[in-house]
Amino acid sequence: MTALRFDPLRLPPHCQELRQEVRAFLADEIAAGTFDPHHPEGGAANADAFSRRVGARGWIGMTWPKAYGGQERSFLERYVVTEEMRVANAPTRRFFVVDRQSGPTLIRYASEAIKRNILPRAVRGEVSFCIGMSEPGSGSDLFAAKTKATRTDGGWLINGTKIWTSNAHQSDYMIGLFRTSQPTRENRRHGLTSFLVDMTTPGIVCNPIGQMTGHREFNEVVFTDVFLPDDNVIGELDGAWKQATSELAYERSGPERFLETYGALDALLRAVGPEPDVRTAAGIGRLVAQLHTLRRMSVSVAGMLEAGREPVVEAAIVKDVGTLWEQALPQRARELSAFLEPDDANHESFEKRLAFYLKTAPKLTIQGGTTEILRGIIARGLGLR
């Protein structure tokens, strides 16, 4: 049984100084037309160049060893950068996955050759990663994965399908979870191995999965006799479940897990102005209080990661509660805007922004694990199942 811990933690002064530095950088990027904070996904065309500029500031791989180009800075500092980027709707998808989880996974489990080859380029903002975990028919149950890696001369042949793979069509690499042997009666988690996949390898096809927003993000990735050399095995053969669960602590606990629809709250505040009516003010107050609570929990998890702990259960709680909050936020913002004048210019802008977030909200439970899976993890950690 796991004892839950969300230690109260305040960001130290040097983190607040970093926050001002990041805000100034983002203000310059917005002024230069790199992206518009009021139009999510609008900076996609400039994402590659933006990624390299973020890398030049030392804000990718901040926590990584200096031997691989990192800064050996704290998880709390990384938290500040992530939070500011997310709130500003900056085009971070080019580097975010490798910075958040793929890089730390390679540092911990990959060969020295892979680390020396990939990590310095990632730090410079030159490579992007996607995560190959979920599969058709198994959803967030990672241990039900059926995509097979079969032994062949000098390596492995991969056959099968991954699904809901965010930005696979734009990624240079994937860390994929593949079945290398059958599970045992004693351990259904046995038999899965992580591999580094070069996404330009012959036999890989990325099929788009449509979204209501009209933006392409999710993909179905099909592998047909894709050859991966032995050197591309990441970590222990047949034992990837040990590293996959710790990897998800990085994926599930950050501010991106409750800030994806934050723009709906920002739009509401702009629409109602500095003197909202009592009903609206009370509703906004509740939303801000809930957001503050989520933020304190997420900062606490960042502190645990900084201390070398693996807060898997706490991270699952942040993801579960955070997703429910950010999914409900656009509709709640619409309810609180009910008394705005329809011909108000602020109202028209608000409706346009809100429409995007309402279309975005349904997909949020897919990212990082469904609510049902997360609650199973929480229940198991608490000794309830």
Rank of each mutant, 00 (worst) to 15 (best):
F258W: 06
D277G: 10
E251Q: 08
A267Y: 13
R380D: 05
K363H: 12
E335L: 13
A328N: 11
M304E: 15
A315H: 03
E348L: 13
A282Y: 12
T323Q: 12
D344P: 01
E314W: 02
L364W: 05
W325K: 04
A289I: 09
D344W: 11
P330W: 10
T323I: 09
L340M: 15
G285H: 07
G322M: 05
L248K: 06
A379G: 06
L265I: 08
E348T: 11
L329M: 06
W325M: 10
R252A: 02
R353K: 04
D343H: 15
A281N: 14
T370C: 02
E348H: 08
L305H: 12
F350T: 07
V272M: 06
G368A: 07
G376C: 03
R286Y: 14
A315I: 01
R252Q: 14
Y250C: 07
E326S: 03
D277N: 15
S337R: 04
L259N: 04
E341Q: 12
T280A: 06
M297C: 07
V288G: 11
R309A: 13
Q327K: 08
Q331E: 13
E306V: 03
A289M: 11
A249T: 02
L305Y: 07
P330N: 13
L269G: 03
A289P: 12
Q243E: 12
R295G: 04
V288I: 13
V301H: 02
M297D: 08
G376M: 00
R279A: 15
G322V: 05
I317K: 01
E310F: 02
Y262K: 09
L354Q: 05
R257S: 01
E256C: 07
I373F: 10
K319P: 10
P362Y: 05
R252I: 03
F258E: 00
T280W: 12
L248P: 02
P330F: 12
R334F: 15
A271L: 11
Q243P: 01
I378P: 00
L269I: 07
L364Q: 08
E351L: 15
E306Q: 14
V321M: 10
Q243C: 05
T245R: 01
I366G: 00
V299I: 14
V313I: 14
A338P: 15
F356R: 01
F356P: 08
L294K: 07
S349E: 12
A244C: 07
M304P: 00
R270L: 10
I373R: 14
T370M: 06
L287Q: 05
G308W: 02
Y357R: 06
L374K: 08
R380V: 01
F350W: 07
I366T: 07
L268G: 12
T370Y: 04
L268C: 09
V278I: 10
A282I: 07
E314G: 01
R295H: 09
G369E: 02
I317N: 06
L269A: 04
E256F: 06
E348K: 07
T293V: 03
R257C: 08
G254S: 10
S300Y: 13
K319T: 00
F356A: 01
